Simulated scan of single mutants.
Amino acid sequence: MEHEIHIITQQGEMVDKFKLLTPHVYEIRGIPVLFTAENFGYIRTIFVNLKSFFYYKEVAKVVAIIREIGPDIVHLNEIGMFSLAKRVKQELRIPVVMHARTVPNRKYKLLLKLFTNQCNRFVDQLICITKSVAYQYPEILHKSVIYNPIQLDENEANRISAINYDSQVFKVLFLANFYKQKGVEETLKAIIELRANLNIQFVIIGSNIKSQAFFKSLFGRLLNLLNVYPDYENRMRKAIQEYELKNVTLLGQVRDIKSEIQNCHLLIAPMHLNGTPRSVFEAGIYGIPSILALYHKIDDLVEHEVNGLVINEKNYKELVNGIVCLERDRSKLKAFGEAAKEKYIQICAQDLAAREMNEVYLRLLAN
């Protein structure tokens, strides 16, 4: 079955990348998206949703483009695009597929109810990128889990170098930008707690989400003080100086992340997002297990005591205990790493994701 792909996308750097895939690329300013994400507070949630209103005029433009294309399926790349889904479904009578990439905030019951209602009315199939995402939408009728694919072919998988699980120096990787919800504070507390054991070395890849100029401004200093946008880079540098830390390396943003991943033994993701970040399977395909924090402890990409450890959110003591456990028990570390590699290469394979997505399209077209 042949596919002719048309992509409607926001103006920016992705336009040129999409044009490498298809000549049918259309640029718009943006699309209104209702927003909810685990551990994002009321103020930020309201702000993001209000900002979305500036793009409502673009909906008519997108509908006109879709009408001209005349596609068999419309795939919306983020849950919350309900204003567009409604018009595509009601006016154009075209099946709508929608992707859900973030775990919704469990505390905002009205938003959860709204998302569920809108999905059941205007979306033919919701694609969740993990079971954690799907778990939070129990009343959405038509949903399935298709994991994000890894860009790794079979030849590359066979050439992956073996991890030296018995190395005296045990490298622990934190890979994320410095959002509060990513567990930066728990990571820093773990580094301080384990500073006496120089065999355990922390490698930090990531940086502040705001510039240094922002944090030097009066507004930036205020938000840092209120812990809304913490200046974690500065806090880490101060902690290194205050505690004379010799067990941490701050790499900032790096180009060759794959090489850095393969130099480590364990990934930590002590997030407050009740979901699994992409870094878990990006590290796992190289044989590196993870310690992941979840509110709802369901077996998903990380299976507790099978290919990693699942701990409680906002609990740095559990994080410390997990790191120490795997540093001391290298046979368990190796077993977890090998299980992670086997699982992620299989369930995150590009051909599997493409096949599962195509099956969704064909089923909707048949109906």
Rank of each mutant, 00 (worst) to 15 (best):
V203N: 05
L251H: 05
E260K: 08
L250F: 01
I204Y: 05
L226R: 07
L225T: 09
N263L: 13
K210Y: 12
E260S: 01
L223C: 06
F214A: 01
I261Y: 06
R237W: 10
Q212E: 15
L245W: 02
Y232M: 03
L218D: 08
D256V: 04
M236G: 04
N247H: 02
E260W: 11
V248C: 13
L218S: 13
K216V: 00
E233A: 02
E260R: 04
F214D: 03
F219Y: 11
Y229W: 14
K246I: 00
L245R: 00
Y243K: 08
I209A: 04
A213Y: 02
R235C: 01
K258A: 13
D256M: 09
N227Y: 10
I257G: 06
I261F: 09
R221E: 09
Q212H: 12
L222M: 13
D256Q: 14
G206A: 06
R237V: 09
L226S: 02
L218V: 12
G206P: 03
V203W: 04
N263T: 11
R221C: 07
Q241F: 06
Q253M: 11
N224Y: 09
E242W: 07
F214E: 03
K246D: 10
L218E: 11
N234I: 00
N247A: 04
A213M: 04
N263Q: 15
S217P: 08
P230L: 03
G252Q: 04
F202M: 02
V228S: 06
K238C: 12
I204W: 08
L225M: 08
K216D: 15
N227I: 00
G206M: 04
R237T: 10
L218C: 06
K216A: 12
V248L: 03
L222I: 06
Q212S: 14
I204K: 05
I261P: 13
S211P: 00
K246G: 09
L222Y: 12
L222S: 06
N224R: 01
N208H: 02
I240H: 00
E233W: 04
